[in-house]
Amino acid sequence: MSTTESSSNFDNLEQMSIQQLLQNINQEDASVPKAVQQAIPQIEALVKEIVPKMKDGGRLFYIGAGTSGRLGILDASEIPPTYGMPHDRVIGLIAGGDGAIRKAVEFAEDDEQQAWKDMEVYDINKGDVVIGIAASGTTPYVIGGVKKANEQGLVTGCITCNADSALAAEAKFPIEAIVGPEFVTGSTRMKAGTAQKLVLNMISTSVMIQLGRVKGNKMVDMQLSNNKLVDRGTRMLMDELSISREEAEKLLKKHGSVRKVIDNVR
């Protein structure tokens, strides 16, 4: 039996008090960063492949089903507002299509051919990278997509939470974050999902930094899409250029981004 499907370290959950439930869930969650830490060499190897591809104009595709697919879409959707990248540079796809983001689509993950069909809509090519996300490492939609990407000469990676899975065997650069049994047996939206989110954060953040989308520790290319972000950009300029809030606001309004202000003022 796979680790993600093995029996919880706890039993008789319905007999626990609310406090006990929360403490025990938290206890289990505490093991997740350690599992991700063990996978850092694997994460590093994949990031080193992604960066030059994206520098040359390539794209990053995430493919997954259920929670795994939703996590990929979440990470992809946050790249444009955070780093000012076009929406078509990091793309998240989920088995069953966009409708599956909110509501599960029965048996969508069992179609081994569909992921590649979904990627072909975007004219996927050898310049792109595909990362399959599946806690179990057995999802046909994901395995089929990675396998076809390999056949077409693309760089492939994966994020899974079982050792020696079929998905990891297909991916050229597998990442295995082995978090152990879930608090509720088989509920991989818990520890496995948390591990996948952490790994996705590490991949996309390190790639964006390597692509020059961060200056110092600031998101200088972020989209100014709400008042909070305009305020953040204003404070960045006040700090970076040692100017007043009034002047920073004026420059930000004129140039439209923190980076453009810095590049034009200095």
Results as ranks from 00 to 15, higher is better:
4 T>W: 05
5 E>G: 03
7 S>C: 07
9 N>P: 04
12 N>R: 09
15 Q>H: 05
15 Q>W: 00
15 Q>T: 15
21 L>Q: 13
22 L>N: 08
26 N>T: 14
27 Q>G: 12
29 D>N: 07
30 A>Q: 13
31 S>R: 10
32 V>A: 11
33 P>C: 07
34 K>I: 15
37 Q>N: 14
38 Q>E: 15
42 Q>H: 05
44 E>K: 04
51 V>N: 02
57 G>A: 03
58 G>P: 02
59 R>Q: 03
60 L>Y: 05
60 L>N: 06
62 Y>G: 10
65 A>C: 15
66 G>N: 09
66 G>V: 12
67 T>G: 00
68 S>R: 10
68 S>E: 08
68 S>Q: 10
69 G>Q: 04
71 L>A: 03
73 I>Q: 00
76 A>H: 00
77 S>E: 07
78 E>S: 09
80 P>G: 10
88 D>Y: 13
88 D>I: 07
88 D>V: 08
90 V>L: 01
91 I>V: 14
91 I>H: 04
92 G>A: 03
92 G>C: 02
93 L>W: 01
93 L>C: 05
93 L>N: 00
96 G>L: 09
97 G>T: 13
97 G>S: 09
98 D>H: 04
99 G>Y: 08
101 I>Q: 03
105 V>I: 15
112 E>K: 10
114 Q>R: 14
114 Q>G: 05
115 A>P: 04
118 D>E: 01
120 E>T: 12
121 V>R: 12
123 D>N: 15
126 K>G: 06
128 D>V: 07
129 V>Y: 02
129 V>D: 01
131 I>V: 15
134 A>R: 02
135 A>R: 08
138 T>L: 12
140 P>A: 11
141 Y>C: 08
142 V>E: 01
146 V>E: 00
150 N>L: 10
152 Q>G: 07
152 Q>A: 14
153 G>Y: 11
153 G>R: 10
155 V>M: 00
155 V>A: 00
155 V>S: 00
156 T>G: 09
156 T>K: 04
156 T>F: 08
163 A>Y: 06
164 D>C: 07
165 S>F: 09
166 A>N: 13
169 A>N: 12
171 A>E: 02
171 A>G: 05
175 I>A: 01
176 E>W: 07
179 V>D: 04
180 G>A: 10
180 G>D: 11
184 V>N: 04
184 V>S: 06
184 V>M: 13
187 S>Q: 01
191 K>G: 13
194 T>W: 01
195 A>Q: 04
197 K>I: 07
197 K>Q: 01
199 V>N: 04
201 N>I: 11
201 N>M: 09
203 I>W: 02
208 M>Y: 12
208 M>G: 09
209 I>L: 11
209 I>P: 05
209 I>F: 07
212 G>T: 13
212 G>E: 05
215 K>Y: 14
217 N>D: 08
222 M>F: 00
224 L>N: 07
224 L>V: 12
225 S>K: 05
231 D>Y: 14
232 R>V: 06
232 R>E: 08
235 R>L: 09
236 M>H: 08
239 D>S: 15
241 L>P: 03
242 S>T: 13
245 R>Y: 04
247 E>K: 14
248 A>Y: 03
248 A>H: 03
251 L>E: 14
251 L>I: 08
252 L>Q: 06
252 L>G: 06
253 K>G: 12
253 K>M: 11
253 K>N: 15
255 H>E: 15
256 G>L: 08
264 N>V: 06
264 N>W: 05
266 R>E: 13
